[in-house]
Design a binder for these strands. Structure first.
Lengths: 220, 220
DNA sequence: CTTACCACTACATGACTATGTAGTCTTGCT
DNA sequence: AGCAAGACTACATAGTCATGTAGTGGTAAG
């Protein structure tokens, strides 16, 4: 997390468009505390090179010949888990955004960002933040918003949540009973109430709603 | 989404600390394109007032006497779904952040933000963006990151995903068969494979892993 | 042609779940 | 005290699931 040498932020760029690549490279390299180690036009070239291991930040396009940016992030996430990757693309459709973030990108910018914002984004990412264009951020935030709850959704109680967690793990009533110190019928009693409150009548539905309403959090 | 009158962004502040409240009020009201309609020290007061219906942005503290900021956002989300609420607090613990976002907040700032960043955040929010302090953004993004997949996790096929979706809805094998045009035993065949690939042996576990690995997306 | 694999069908069986009904014990309310 | 509600125990039963084993037809590889 620290810049060991010269406090420089070492950047690697992967971008197939030559003008974009050289433009960014020039802009960023001009900053006194940045250094662009190298820039590549494909993931394959970048990953074959030595410099990737020395980078602090990777700036990656999403559409690339050969291995896509998404695949590239997955690869980097596996090989260099602590190396932050910022996606920068012209596309802001949901699929690309969420695929990139799921794959491990720490930030997502539109290519039209101003040089100033790009520089700030790199500093943010290097400092452990997650730079995003505001409307990308809104997409992300919106996934957290709950569908406005109907009036009559009863809240699950602590004991019920506890049991719902165990249900999600696939345990039998007997096994759950051992964990929460209840008889099998005691477990059944609570599960009836859970089903009624969530308005379901199978385990799987209960688990599904429990997770999607963020009542419980899977640990897989 | 448009400022109809005078192009002004109309702001309401809910913050119990008097100095904070007056400080923000002064800073924001001084901007030529902002107007602070009013500021309140509790949600109850704010919601009783008329001005809330005229606001473009609400800036809300999370710790408040009486109704908490989280509760406040929930209320506003229900009564004024299109009114963006920005949470601003001294706490950046995960629970507060995610509770606030789940409740419907569009942004989340630390109280230590500079006046410049606060103004920018309000402009972003009003324009449909989601302002966040960079380290908050990282927390949010991290929830998307998949646990680096073990080598041996087999990918589910299209047909299997289709069936997993139905499993999450709690349907019986027979009911699933009707949807995907398969015999009950055909459904069973795929489910065996799903269980093997996800390394589980109950419906609920399969659903739980399917959702948490974002293989399927619940529709509750 | 043979071998192998895949998608699917078929059947059997023990285990588990969903649901109804009912009784006990505790706690709070009037 | 009397009553209602909540938390739990108990039992019964139809329905569903998980798993093993086995067979068929299609298609790709050797």
């Amino acid at each position: 997390m620290q810049n060991t040498v010269n406090e420089l932020i070492k950047i690697v760029i992967v971008e197939d468009n030559r003008y974009m690549r050289e433009g960014w490279s020039t802009i960023l390299d001009f900053e006194p505390d940045f250094v662009v180690l190298d820039s590549f036009e494909s993931c394959e070239e970048a990953f074959d090179s030595e410099v990737i291991a020395k980078a602090n930040i990777v700036l990656m396009d999403i559409e690339l010949p050969g291995m896509s940016g998404i695949e590239g992030v997955k690869y980097l996430q596996k090989e260099h888990p602590d190396l932050p990757v910022i996606m920068a693309t012209v596309f802001d459709d949901d699929k690309n955004v969420f695929d990139a973030l799921c794959a491990g990108a720490v930030g997502y910018l539109m290519k039209k960002v101003s040089p100033e914002d790009l520089k700030q984004a790199i500093r943010d990412a290097e400092a452990g933040g997650s730079p995003m264009t505001p409307n990308i951020a809104r997409k992300v935030i919106t996934t957290f918003h709950q569908p406005t709850e109907e009036e009559d959704v009863e809240q699950l109680k602590e004991r019920e949540l506890e049991i719902l967690e165990e249900l999600a793990k696939g345990k039998s009533y007997a096994a759950i009973g051992e964990v929460v110190y209840l008889s099998v019928d005691g477990v059944r009693y609570h599960i009836r109430n859970i089903y009624r409150k969530l308005q379901v009548n199978t385990r799987s539905e209960a688990v599904s709603k429990g997770i999607s309403r963020r009542l419980i959090h899977p640990d897989s």
